[in-house]
């Protein structure tokens, strides 16, 4: 097994862990704002790790570049949309969670 393969496996497993953690957070966290926090971790870091792991295996620089471009787009959309959802929730008076 090549070094690149081992690196890919580690990165993909790391990405899967972040997605799992993000999903558990989405299901278990108490209010909109904390759920968004969990979700964006999965999107940003989890997808980043998965994209890096796949880019190592890419056949060409162009394919690796497209993968990274997808990640950047998801970063942009994720950050923007989670702000908009949080802002919308705030405007509608969705209460913060308090212990």
């Amino acid at each position: 097994m090549m070094l690149a393969d081992i690196l890919t496996i580690i990165l993909l497993l790391g990405g899967a862990f972040f997605f799992l953690a993000g999903t558990i957070g989405l299901l278990r966290f108490p209010d909109v704002y904390t759920r968004l926090h969990a979700l964006t971790k999965a999107d940003n870091v989890g997808l980043g790790l998965i994209v890096t792991g796949l880019a190592i295996q890419a056949q060409s620089w162009a394919a690796a570049g497209k993968l990274i471009l997808i990640w950047l787009l998801v970063l942009l959309a994720g950050a923007g949309v989670s702000y908009l959802i949080a802002n919308g929730a705030l405007a509608r008076g969705v209460a913060f969670w308090k212990r």
Partner: peptide, 14 residues
């Protein structure tokens, strides 16, 4: 119409 600075930047980029 919803406007916010974040949405504007997002749309300018997207």
């Amino acid at each position: 119409v919803h406007t916010s600075p974040v949405l504007n930047v997002l749309i300018q980029l997207l």
